[in-house]
Amino acid sequence: MLSVENLRSRYGRIEVLHGVDIEVRSGEIITVVGANGAGKTTLLRCISGVQPISGGGIVFRGETLQTVPAHRRVALGLSQSPEGRQIFTNLSVEENLRLGAYLFADERVETDMAEAFALFPILREKRNLAAGGLSGGQQQMLAIARALMARPACLLLDEPSMGLAPILVAQILDVVKDLKKRGLTVLLVEQNAYAALQVADRGYVMETGRITMSGPAEQLIADERIRTAYLGV
């Protein structure tokens, strides 16, 4: 469904992705784990089109993405819940969700919003409040719900567990598993490797802009090097 080939990207003159290859097949949950600064966020920004790439390519459902502007990639079925939530703080919770479905103006917007509220009931309670006033965990739920409003075929999640209490991390990962059951493809980026590998089908390990290891999630969880480097055991 999504393949990233030999992808390179830089900030100014400093290259931070040095040829990354990733393959995401339809219906899979794929995770990219790696330490702080490895380039995971840069990778997702490249896929969404909000970060220029300096080499390699991205193909999504048979379409080459390099020349497709960010807003059109959403229409193709790629949507992202970005790192740091990036919600519209000045707008209400409901407006954030409505804007998630910016490309649509049909009745399904209403049912999708009801579904989002069913997934995260706290958002229904706060629907008329400014999103900037939500707690960190609620903002994270809003960011995910907003991304789902775009009716993605492939959902990109950047650090959904960042800064959250363990109970909320578990809740969000449950939602991810739930989404997979509904046939959604998910590319999940996490520093919290243990949590991510528990829900993922396959994983990639990223170190300073390169993929250093990949394989089925249970295999990675059991790998000695990963256990010492990322799982703290």
Binding site: S48, G49, V50, A70, H71, R72, V74, A75, S79, Q80, P82, Q86, I87, F88, T89, N90, L91, E95, R98, L99, G100, Y102, L103, R146, A147, M149, A150
Partner: peptide
């Protein structure tokens, strides 16, 4: 609202398809 969203957070606006 899309204009307000763009003013509020340009990257996020692009990520929702604006």
């Amino acid at each position: 609202k899309a204009i307000l969203a763009t003013a509020n957070n340009r990257v996020a606006a692009r990520l929702v398809g604006i």
